[in-house]
Write a protein that binds this DNA or RNA. Structure first.
Lengths: 247, 247
DNA sequence: ACGTTGAGATTGCCG
DNA sequence: CGGCAATGTCAACGT
């Protein structure tokens, strides 16, 4: 039986699996999809169901008791007191969602225009592989150490005692985020720690590029000699197709 | 009009807000809850809707077009080609979900039995406040430096060059997780960095306690002198009530 | 209201 | 299939 089934029922629910959970008696929506997944919704709390079972799973249906289980030993038990409605509809396959404006797109635009991050910066490689994961952008700064002279002293990297690669020239690792928090700074720090073990790259410094950077992330980044650059998505998209803005 | 509304409709959808997204024409379930939130489901893909708008938001309904918007400028537009079904039900307030087995419970059990983490360890305080957030457990090791002698050399902390408080006695900061990843190591590292600025506590070392620890997290933790302890939830619960296991 | 943290996170990607 | 990182993460809680 293909299609989606909607049941309004007064029920209690028990889940045993990754945790134990229980729902007292109340009227709720039971949503059974074609893939067998079941979700139990109340009339609030946005889109997240109170309980659910993700596919693949099997539904065993008795008159007053549904038992949904999967191969990992998780069990969802729905004890049905009364059914108020029970309808089914065949929806067919969904053509799917198209998205625009996510981190991947921001990374593409920055890869095409690394100079936005810092004048003269050139892209070496996107998704540069390290043994702890890929760095979003690895760039090279032809100006090298000379660059530091032109920077405001307040933005200059700390002295050589820093724990990560806080230097002022050569290679540059860029972490791209839509919204950057302290975790993004830690992530970039890990990469820098790793990249600076490579004698062919060392010294490598870091740039955190995001549409928005949390204040605490900015403080942490600067204390580690990591530059923060806030990028404007629309403006960047304009640079990507400059011929469109000529007239 | 209180209650939940279920509409089966052929529609296209556009979302503009944190990103841009579009859904081509297809038949879907539109779920409108009493709080005004709207979610659009296909017949698959677990419980997450294809598109949605979380409350608070307002729904403006025209014959062939629903417009859902919030105060942050996000807009969800549903162009309705045909309505196949449209039913409403008043579900009433839900008494809510009870849970057991989450991190908070694991933290309680470890607070009551810190010796599980390391013989002799004593609890100083749960949720010990620092200015960058609370440490799950702050403990004290009466054995102090003498402990290191009994440890396997392979597990011994690194030399004093480590960037965070990787020492071998006195106070111990414990980070509790159900599943620990590298981010948990970073989190604990930040706390250690902070705690070791306090002369009354220094030196403070770290223990990462979790039901499961990712291999990369283990490597990173040990490179920073942080001990990893895998705890068994059921076993720990047994220790909490030892009188029940006497016979 | 804002920030921080946990979550049965889910989902997609790539090894 | 397992590890890893992004997500319009969401939701709960404390300040």
């Amino acid at each position: 039986m293909a299609g989606m089934r909607l049941v309004i029922a007064s029920c209690t629910v028990d889940y045993q699996g990754r945790l134990d959970a229980h729902l007292p008696l109340a009227t709720r929506l039971l949503l059974v999809k074609a893939d067998g997944s079941v979700s139990i919704h109340s009339d609030g709390g946005a889109y997240k169901p109170l309980n659910w079972m993700t596919p693949p799973c099997t539904l065993a249906e008795e008159p007053a008791r549904w038992t949904v289980s999967n191969t990992k030993g998780e069990v969802l038990t729905i004890n049905i007191e009364r059914i108020h409605a029970d309808v089914s509809h065949d929806l067919g396959l969904d053509p799917g969602l198209t998205k625009d404006g996510v981190e991947a797109h921001l990374q593409e635009l920055l890869a095409a225009n690394p100079g936005v991050l810092e004048s003269g910066l050139r892209l070496v490689r996107r998704e540069y592989a390290t043994d702890i994961g890929p760095v979003d952008l690895l760039c090279h700064d032809p100006a090298g150490r000379a660059l530091a002279i032109t920077l405001d002293p307040a933005e200059a990297p700390p002295t050589a005692g820093g724990s990560v690669g806080a230097t002022d020239g050569g290679y540059v690792a860029v972490e791209v985020k839509r919204r950057a928090g302290v975790d993004a700074v830690d992530q970039l720090s890990r990469y820098l720690e790793r990249l600076n073990l490579d004698g062919r790259l060392r010294p490598v410094r870091g740039i955190l590029a995001a549409q928005a950077i949390a204040p605490q992330a900015r403080v942490l980044a600067e204390s580690r000699g990591i530059r923060c650059v806030v990028v404007d998505y629309d403006e960047l998209q304009g640079k990507a197709e400059p011929e469109l803005t000529l007239f």
